[in-house]
Design a protein around this nucleic acid. Structure first.
Length: 586
RNA sequence: UGGGGAGUCGCCAAGCUGGUUAAGGCACAUGGUUUUGAUCCAUGCAUGCGAAGGUUCGAAUCCUUCCUCCCCAGCCA
């Protein structure tokens, strides 16, 4: 068994290096923490922060978490853990339109499922950006009062037109030079529902000719008469992400605000907001710093929220928890494990280079983890009858089977050998192809954990389909008995008794998309959907699986890793294939 | 054509305040073990760091020029 050193020492990455350097320079040595999020005044009354660093995972609760989020979760929570810091779970709910509590709850469950919580020093660091609306409103007024923000009454179209282009500078708004008092009055009116949605917007006053378009007076507050999932109708104005995020980070004492590459251009504004609020004494040093890493791209998978929503809404999949979905909830149902995701995240690393990770890496990680933990069981996926000629009809004999051949401490069980067995269709060939060493007339194989048999032929129906394979068993070759290896065979096939086998249904999954980069070459990623991503078959299980329960996971020997589906019952056993075993034959 | 990033083995990825033979993982190859064609073990696997120049006793690391790819013009995040 492979040792697990890979997961014990943390591979270096640029963010880890930055944190180590920061700690060496005692950057956060005298940071105060008020016990809860708050402004300068609040934290100054607190104590020295016991958390060496603070990171955060800040999802917007408008969808389910997916594998890409797992990368961010392992990064942020992992860093906090390794440096004796805290990682906050923060719901970035600044746009009420698509946010709701269902998503909040699913995110909490998913993060927990991956093995993380937000406790630190007996404090629960679970926060909502919406709890800071009052402080953000105060911050906005501070910017207005100091001449760093103004109310723009241009239409959205006009603002867009006057923003300029990548190569041409923008044009100042005619409302840009309103007095602070006038702006303050208008902003208060905005808040007091005096103005219609879209009629005006609060903008930061920076530089309409900045080469960085994000600095051309970005909008920071808009009017939106939408009920918020937590503040309901208390507010009709909501802060934009670009304005809200640095403030959220600062209020929570975040030291390292880690996000993906597309926010790089936003960093100057992130710092601008914080510096202005530092000047206004709403915030204090040390200010949080933003760092960006490359988001995960997985071949044969789409991770964009827009696509995932469409797959669900247009019924290409059965729901967010369809085992083929890259969501955490779907992965879980598929049988993917937190340990597997951990290994995966360690294996792919963190950097700023755009990259595509092959889906097989993820599958390999799941196999590696499951191989160690999964008990083995026997299942026949494509049953074909095998009859042992030289055994009496009522023959029954117990065979001892280890639950894990590489880890005998996991115990053993028995299965009953009878005259008639189910074997895999693929384990018999009337006319064997080259290098085939399973059953064919005249060949010998071992019935795994039982006897060596010699194939004597087969029977077919009138259409020529093989319906029964015949064989003789060799006495004295039973597994575990002294003379068992007197006959050497290459083939070793699994089986279940036709008399005792259990019926079950298993779903065999393939990738949801047939192209490596869905939507890249075709016009629409939906055209790349794999029409054969799911195949459901009736199978035979060994008798010991009678009490299998939802989420039980096993390796079915010679097949792969399987998990009992959440909808499975004792009357109707339903199983999902997580991933096959590696197969280097052919 | 403006700005911001990135280019190290088939895929990831350390190193990048210049200094022995360019970490590690995955994949692959070849042996070995094996009652899962699985697992496991051993060995091998970049004279090269996007390209070309330059500085230097010495460069993936510094300088110059060039090439390729990604991101930015929501009152989304």
């Amino acid at each position: 068994m492979k040792n697990q050193t890979e997961s014990n020492d943390n591979p270096s990455n640029f963010i880890r290096a930055i944190i180590e350097k920061n700690i060496r320079h005692k950057l956060y040595e005298n940071k105060n923490w008020g016990g809860t999020p708050g402004d300068k005044n609040h934290h100054s009354k607190g104590k020295k922060d016991l958390a060496k660093i603070r990171t955060r995972f800040p999802p917007e609760p408008n969808g389910y978490l997916h594998i890409g989020h797992a990368k961010s979760i392992f990064l942020n929570f992992g860093l906090a853990k390794d440096f004796n810091g805290a990682c906050h779970l923060r719901f970035d709910d600044t746009n009420p339109e698509k946010e709701n509590d269902e998503f909040v709850n699913s995110i909490i469950e998913d993060v927990n499922w991956l093995g993380f919580d937000w406790q630190f020093n007996s404090e629960s660091n679970l926060f909502y950006a919406s709890d800071y609306f009052e402080l953000m409103y105060t911050a906005a007024k501070l910017l207005i009062q100091t001449g760093h923000a103004y109310i723009d009454q241009q239409s959205a179209d006009e603002i867009k037109k006057n923003r300029g282009t990548l190569t041409k500078p923008g044009i100042n708004s005619p409302f840009r030079n309103l007095s602070p008092d006038e702006n303050l009055r208008l902003f208060e009116e905005m808040k007091d529902t005096k103005h219609a949605d879209g009629s005006m917007v609060l903008r930061a006053k920076i530089d309409m000719s900045s080469p960085n378009i994000n600095l051309r007076d970005p909008a920071i507050y808009r009017i939106k008469r939408t009920t918020h999932h937590r503040t309901f109708n208390e507010w009709c104005i909501y802060p934009m992400y670009t304005f809200a995020h640095p403030i959220e980070d600062a209020l929570e004492g975040i030291t390292h605000s880690i996000c993906t590459l597309e926010f790089e251009d936003q960093r100057p504004f992130y710092d601008w907001v914080l510096e202005k609020l530092l000047d206004n004494k709403l915030l204090s040093n040390p200010l949080p710093k933003q760092y960006e890493f490359a988001r995960l791209n997985l071949t044969y998978v789409v991770l964009s929220k827009r696509c995932l929503v469409e797959l669900v809404e247009k019924n290409y999949v059965s729901g967010w928890n369809d085992p083929r979905m890259p969501t955490l909830i779907g992965s879980r149902r598929r049988g993917y494990t937190p340990e597997g995701f951990k290994l995966f995240c360690e294996r792919i690393g963190v950097s700023k280079a755009d990259s595509w990770i092959d889906y097989s890496i993820l599958e390999d990680c799941m196999r590696e983890v499951l191989n160690i933990s999964s008990h083995r069981r026997i299942a026949v996926l494509e049953p074909l009858k095998l009859v042992i000629n030289n055994l009496p009809d009522d023959f029954e004999e117990e065979c001892f089977v280890p639950n894990h051949p590489q880890n005998l401490e996991l115990g053993k069980r028995t299965i009953k050998l009878t005259k008639e067995l189910w074997i895999e269709k693929a384990d018999f060939m009337e006319e064997p192809e080259k290098k085939y060493f399973r059953l064919f007339p005249g060949n010998q194989v071992r019935l795994r954990y039982g006897y060596v048999i010699t194939c004597t032929g087969c029977e077919k129906d009138k259409d020529g389909n093989i319906i029964k394979v015949l064989c003789d068993y060799l006495p004295d070759t039973k597994s575990g008995t002294p003379g068992s290896d007197s006959v050497k065979v290459k083939g070793n096939i699994h089986w279940v008794s036709t008399k005792y086998a259990l019926n079950a249904e298993v779903s065999l999954y393939d990738r949801l998309f047939k192209s490596e980069h869905p939507g890249l070459e075709s016009e629409n990623y939906l055209d790349d959907i794999n029409p054969n991503s799911i195949k459901t078959v009736k199978i035979k299980l060994e008798e010991n699986l009678a009490n299998i329960k939802p989420y039980d996971q096993y390796q079915f020997e010679r097949h792969g890793y399987f998990i009992c589906d959440q909808e499975s019952t004792s009357d109707f056993i339903k199983i999902n294939r997580t991933v096959t075993l590696r197969d280097t034959w052919k």
